[in-house]
C-alpha cells in the first residue's frame, strides 16, 4: 500500500515550456529584434558586439514581457476570437497570474539588463515602451477607441529608437523618422487585416474602425495612411542613415503601397466578398514585405557606408 495516489488522467492544464515562450509573442519579438537591430546598426557610433547582442536580446525580452502582460489582460477577448483562442491562457494551459508574474519579472529584468549592458537612457526608453504597450494600449485604448491601432502602434515603433539610443545614448531626427515609419505603417497594416478578419473583432467587441465607422470609411483611412506614410518613408532616405539604395527602394515600395491603398479604397464590400478579400490579403502581405525591405535597405546603406560607399 502507498500513501501516494496518482492521478492517471491527463490534465490538459499542464503547460509546456513552449507555452511560456508563446506568452512572449515570438512573432512580434522577431519584428522588434529586426527593427531594433537596424536602429543600432545605422547609428553613427558603434558598440562592442557583445554589448550590441545583449542589448538586442533584452530589448526583445522587454517586448516579449509586454506581450505576456497583454495576453494576461486580454485573455477574455482572446478566448472569443478564433485566431487567439488557442493561446496559453484562454486554452487553460497557463494561469493568468503566472502570465502576469512572468510579464512583470521579465519587464524588470530586461530594463535592468539593458541599463547595465548599454545605458540608462535606452533602459528608460524600454521601460516606457513596455508601459505604453501594456497599459496605454492594452488597458486604456484597445477596448475604448477605434484609434487604438493608431496610438498603440507607437509601442511597436519604439524599438528602432531604442536600438539607436543603445549606440548614441539619445534621440535624433533619424531615429524619430524610423519611429514614424513604423508608426504610420501600423494602421494600414492592421486595418487591411481587420477587413478580412472582420468576424473575429466583431465577436470580441474590440472597437475596430471597421466596426465603429464602417468598412468604406476604413478603406478610405487605409488610403489616407499610405499617402501620409510615403513622405515619412522617403524623408528618412534624405538623412544621414539614407542613401541612393534606400531612396530608390522607398520610392518603389511606397508607390506599390499607395497603389494597394487606392485599390482597397476603390473596392466595394460586395466585390471584396466575391473574391474572398483577395486585394486586402495581398496588401496585408505586401505591408509585411514593405517594412522588412525599408529596414533592410537602411541596413544595406549602413553596410555600404562601412566600406566607404553608400550614404550621401
Amino acid at each position: 500500500m502507498s500513501d501516494f495516489t496518482a492521478n492517471t488522467s491527463s490534465p490538459p492544464q499542464e503547460a509546456t515550456f513552449g507555452d511560456y515562450l508563446a506568452l512572449l509573442k515570438p512573432r512580434v519579438m522577431s519584428l522588434v529584434v529586426f527593427t531594433a537591430f537596424v536602429g543600432l546598426m545605422v547609428a553613427p557610433q558603434g558598440v562592442p558586439p557583445m554589448v550590441g547582442f545583449t542589448a538586442i536580446l533584452f530589448i526583445a525580452l522587454g517586448g516579449g514581457a509586454s506581450g505576456a502582460l497583454n495576453m494576461w489582460y486580454d485573455a477574455d477577448i482572446d478566448a472569443v476570437m478564433k485566431r487567439t483562442s488557442g493561446r496559453p491562457i484562454p486554452s487553460g494551459r497557463v494561469a493568468p497570474g503566472e502570465a502576469l508574474g512572468l510579464g512583470l519579472w521579465l519587464s524588470a529584468l530586461s530594463v535592468v539588463m539593458l541599463g547595465l549592458a548599454a545605458n540608462w537612457f535606452a533602459a528608460g526608453f524600454l521601460a516606457f515602451t513596455i508601459f505604453f504597450y501594456a497599459v496605454v494600449y492594452t488597458i486604456w485604448l484597445k477596448r475604448s477607441t477605434p484609434q487604438n491601432i493608431v496610438i498603440g502602434g507607437a509601442a511597436g515603433a519604439f524599438p528602432p529608437m531604442i536600438g539607436w539610443a543603445v549606440a548614441t545614448g539619445g534621440v535624433s531626427l533619424e531615429s524619430v523618422l524610423m519611429f514614424a515609419l513604423v508608426f504610420m505603417w501600423t494602421p494600414p497594416h492592421f486595418w487591411a487585416l481587420a477587413l478580412f478578419m472582420k468576424s473575429d473583432y466583431d465577436a470580441a467587441k474590440v472597437p475596430m474602425l471597421t466596426v465603429t465607422h464602417g468598412r468604406p470609411h476604413t478603406r478610405k483611412m487605409i488610403l489616407a495612411y499610405t499617402l501620409l506614410l510615403s513622405p515619412v518613408a522617403i524623408a528618412a532616405g534624405l538623412t544621414t542613415i539614407g542613401g541612393p539604395v534606400y531612396l530608390a527602394a522607398a520610392v518603389v515600395l511606397n508607390l506599390i503601397f499607395v497603389k494597394g491603398g487606392y485599390d482597397i479604397w476603390r473596392r466595394t464590400e460586395d466585390a471584396a466578398r466575391a473574391d474572398d478579400y483577395r486585394t486586402e490579403k495581398k496588401v496585408f502581405r505586401f505591408s509585411l514585405l514593405y517594412l522588412f525591405l525599408h529596414f533592410g535597405a537602411l541596413l544595406v546603406e549602413a553596410g555600404l557606408r562601412s566600406v566607404g560607399l553608400g550614404g550621401w
Binding site: 499542464e14 503547460a15 515550456f17 511560456y20
Partner: peptide
C-alpha cells in the same frame, strides 16, 4: 514506493525544468 512509470505529465515537467535550466 517510488514512481516507476513515466506519465506524459512527467515529460512535460521535464521539458519545463530543462527549459528553465
Amino acid at each position: 514506493m517510488p514512481i516507476t512509470e513515466t506519465h506524459e505529465i512527467h515529460n512535460r515537467r521535464m521539458g519545463r525544468n530543462l527549459g528553465v535550466g
